[in-house]
């Protein structure tokens, strides 16, 4: 079955991103297809590579990036939410005249249309948030 996942909360503050990760991991293990994980609202904060959690804690961003590398997951950050919160890729850096980018490996920035498209194309869309 083809799943799409929506993540509305950032890392560490709320369990939503953790539960979403465990769900996606289990779905992939079971042989399902996860066609997209869309990060919206504060959820886009999962996609900065500049976090340094303590070594005895889980590394939420790295966990997503690793899963994306292993399974060719499509991790999409909502562009409007990113612009408001300072999550920047190279294109956004140039377009908005910023002096750095911070997007993590395996993530990309795109529009809300990607969420609607996921809702249309996936058999099930499941939301994790607060």
């Amino acid at each position: 079955m083809k799943f799409a996942v929506l993540v509305n909360e950032g890392p560490y503050q709320h369990q939503a991103s953790d539960t979403a990760y465990q769900f996606v991991h289990a779905a992939l293990q079971a042989g399902h297809d996860v066609m997209r994980v869309f990060f919206y609202h504060d959820g886009v904060n999962n996609g900065t590579r500049l976090t340094s959690p303590p070594q005895d804690d889980r590394h939420i961003q790295k966990r997503w990036s690793d899963l994306a590398a292993e399974h060719k997951l499509d991790l999409v950050l909502c562009v409007a939410a990113c612009q408001r919160r300072g999550i920047v890729d190279e294109d956004e850096m140039k377009r908005n005249g910023k002096d750095a980018d911070n997007i993590a490996e395996g993530f990309r920035i795109s529009g809300l249309g990607q969420l609607i498209e996921a809702g249309i194309e996936a058999d099930r869309l499941i939301t994790f948030g607060d």
Binding site: M1, F3, N8, Q22, F23, H25, A26, A27, Q29, A30, H32, D123, R124, L125, I126, T127, F128, G129, D130
Partner: peptide, 20 residues
């Protein structure tokens, strides 16, 4: 259910409604 069971539940139902 564990996470695998969670995935199965999603597959078994027609839709998911997350009450956020």
């Amino acid at each position: 259910v564990d996470y695998t069971g969670f995935v199965e539940l999603v597959a078994q139902h027609d839709r998911v409604h997350s009450w956020l």
